[in-house]
Structure formats: structure tokens, C-alpha cells
Write a protein that binds this DNA or RNA. Structure first.
Lengths: 218, 218
DNA sequence: ATTATAGGCTAATCCAAATTAGCCGTCAAG
DNA sequence: CTTGACGGCTAATTTGGATTAGCCTATAAT
């Protein structure tokens, strides 16, 4: 990794721990192994480092969105994958989402930084909201929409069902950001949550039979 | 309100919008209507202002906890109140919780400040977690425990049920902190959420009958 | 070989913001 | 009526930290 990139990396680490205003240019330089003035060979000033981090995130984010689009286009195939999704697979789905967000180094640091900086600037708030709330809901919502369509799950309102799935994951995630020592507890809760979610929303045989009867009556 | 108190008040407002490090002592003084050096007649330094805010919050918080204890002690009476809770009353419960957290000026500013400062210091993280996650869950959990005991709601796991109730409220709350213009949307979602929660967990007549049969069979 | 560029360093410089010094008016207690 | 504490002000002072100036070396291109 070249110096220019290492600066971004170390700056992100520091910003995510202390917030922009509490990080000194000299701190960043130190971690990179150079002196503060040398930073200015790479970035115009401190703000430019922050902006570059946001820009890089936007880039990664677009790539990721592109990847998701492909999955979206391939919805039929995805639907097949999940057509027979078991409780254990559902747990895996949630656990993977959770652990990816929690442990992916870049995602985690970026989220913590945005948590601190979100009120400085409406645009940062929007990025946070999109990346850690709206987009996961929209992606999961698409998935659950398919599961409902194929009769695995049942609900009158897929969006609310998706919130019921994701909101606990989100709450546990931000809990672990602030109290990492509670990760074990969070994993346990996460699993219990998804089991209960599954038993609440899964279309069981009885219900299917009941619905058939309803059809006959009409 | 005396000057000493007004300083805390204005400081909290500013800290909640910009974070401690981005607020200048002169900003606080300005809003109070005095000059920066005069602040030092009331507080030793900037940090002491922050500490006093935390101390005051702890005081208010203990009072509140005391009040809750009283309710807890009076659990039998509370149980009566909720024994016949309707869907509309459940929605009110959630809406009130949500709107209190969102609109109570002190709570809102304090929460935003802690959001920004939580990673500076583990003790701040703990306060946040306790006040906006653990305590609401524990209080709601107690309530739902009673509702289950009195046969209004049914579940195998009250804690998870409580998370299913509260996590969406929490997620909508922090959404409104960062994008206040989405409050209307959040209120709508909140209501839909609770209706669906109600229909998922309410022990309906059919189920009661089913359970009676189960008893007979045994 | 020469030169230009990239990227590092040390030693200023600059500046904003916290804090201190020291003065003054007011008012309540003696 | 006078004195001392309270709380305000202006004018320094201090300081920490961002940024600039100017120099040096290595390396890559001509």
C-alpha cells in the first residue's frame, strides 16, 4: 500500500476512534511513519484527507451497489436459492450480515466515523442512513419479498417484516460498536431473535391448509 | 434559570450539534449572553462544563430510575391497567415512548451528544447503552412479562418479544435524530410496526381455544 | 550525465482558542 | 456606610496544532 493510501487508512482508524476534531495531523503522520509536514506532499490539508476517505467510500459503495444490482437482475436465480430456506439458513443469513458489518474492518471503522460525524453535515447523515439502514432494508426486503412470493414466509406487510428482521440486528450492531465485550451476548440474542422471527413469520403447513380452506369458501 | 445553569443548557445544545471538540468556549458564552472569560467564574474550564452536564444527567437519571422503581413496586396495579390492553393502546405505548425520546428536549440533546462522544470514553458508551437500550428493554420487558402472564400476549421468549417491539422504535428514533425531516414517515412506520407486532404476538381466541384443547388432551 | 519530480525532513510561522490577570460595579450582610 | 463576594468586562498571555518555507536525496526519464 502506498503512502497516499496508508494515510487514508490510518486517518480512518483514528477518526473512527476519536472523531475528526480530536485527531492531530501529527498523529496520522506518526502512524504512517513520517513527519506531519510530509503529509502535505500528499494532501492539501487535513480536511482533504477526510474528503478523500468519503470519496473512497463512495467509490467502494458504488462498486458494491453494482454487485447488488447484478444479484437483483438475477432475482429469479436468487429466489430459487432461498425457495426452501430453512431456519438454520435464515440464521446464517442474519449472522453473516451481522458479522460482516461488525468485523469487516473498513465497514466498521467507516461506520464508527460516520456515527461521530453524522451531525456535522446533512450529507454525512444521509450516507450513514443509506448505508446502514435504508440499503440493508431495501436489500433484505427484496429477498423477503421473494420468500413471501414463493410461499415460505407469510405477512401482510413485507416492509414491516423486514424491519422486524433487521432492526434487532442493527441495534445489536451499534451495541457492539460501543461495547465490543458484549459480542458473545449479542450473537446469542441474534440467534434467538431469528428463531423467533422464523416461527412468527414462517408459513407452516397448518396455515397453508387453513388458507386453502379459505379459498374454497370464497 | 441562573447563569451557571444556562451555561450547562447552552453547552449541551452546542455539544449535541457539533460535539465537544468543535464547540468554542466563546460560543457557549455568546449564547448565554456573556463573554468567554466570565465563564471561568462559574466553571474551572471547558472540561468541567462537560463533566457537569454528565453529572446533572446522572442526577436526573437516578430520579427517573427511582420513579420507575415505584412503578415496579406497584407492578400489580400496572398489570391491571394493561390487562385488557387493546391494539390502539399498544400503539399509544410505543408512540409515547418514541415521541418522548424524540421530542423531550433534554433527552434528545443528551442522546445526540452521547452519540458523538460515546467512543471517547467507555463510561460514556455505557451511559448511552444503559439509557437508550438496556433500560428501555428492561422496562418494556417487565411490562410485556405482565401481559404474557395475564394472557394478553403469547411468546416463548419475552426478552426477544421485547426486542421485537423496541428495536424498530430505536432504529426509527436514531433515524429521526439524523434526518428529522423523516419524522412523518417514521410515525407511519412505527404504527404499522406495532399493528403487525400486535397481530403476531396477541393471543387470539382461536389460539386460546387451541390451548384449552391441548390441556384436555394431556 | 543531467535534470526534474516525488517525497522526506527540520525549522519556522501563524493562528485560533483556551485560559489568566486584573479591573470594576452591584448588592447584601455586618 | 463599608466591605467583601459575586459576576461581569477588556486586555493580555499561552499554547497546541495546522500549515508553510526551504532544503535534501533518490530515482526515473531524457
Amino acid at each position: 500500500m502506498d503512502t497516499r493510501q496508508r494515510i487514508l487508512d490510518e486517518a480512518l482508524t483514528l477518526f473512527s476512534e476519536k472523531g475528526y476534531a480530536n485527531v492531530f495531523v501529527a498523529d496520522i503522520a506518526n502512524r504512517v511513519g513520517i513527519k506531519a509536514p510530509s503529509l502535505y506532499k500528499h494532501y492539501k490539508n487535513k480536511q482533504a484527507i477526510f474528503d478523500a476517505i468519503i470519496a473512497e467510500m463512495n467509490k467502494r459503495f458504488l462498486e458494491q451497489a453494482g454487485a447488488l444490482q447484478i444479484n437483483g437482475a438475477d432475482a429469479a436465480a436468487d429466489a430459487d436459492i432461498y425457495k426452501t430456506i430453512s431456519e438454520e439458513q435464515l440464521i446464517d443469513l442474519g449472522r453473516n450480515l451481522f458479522l460482516y458489518f461488525l468485523h469487516d474492518d473498513y465497514t466498521r471503522r467507516f461506520r464508527k466515523m460516520l456515527t461521530i460525524e453524522q451531525f456535522h453535515d446533512a450529507s454525512l447523515a444521509k450516507i450513514y442512513q443509506k448505508q446502514y439502514v435504508d440499503d440493508p432494508l431495501s436489500y433484505q426486503g427484496m429477498l423477503f419479498g421473494m420468500l413471501v412470493a414463493s410461499g415460505i414466509l407469510q405477512t401482510e406487510n413485507v416492509e414491516i417484516m423486514t424491519i422486524h428482521f433487521y432492526a434487532p440486528i442493527y441495534m445489536l450492531l451499534v451495541m457492539c460498536d460501543r461495547e465490543p465485550e458484549r459480542e458473545q451476548e449479542a450473537m446469542k440474542t441474534l440467534e434467538d431473535h431469528i428463531r423467533q422471527f422464523n416461527s412468527l413469520y414462517r408459513r407452516d403447513e397448518k396455515t397453508i391448509r387453513k388458507n386453502r380452506n379459505k379459498h374454497k369458501e370464497q
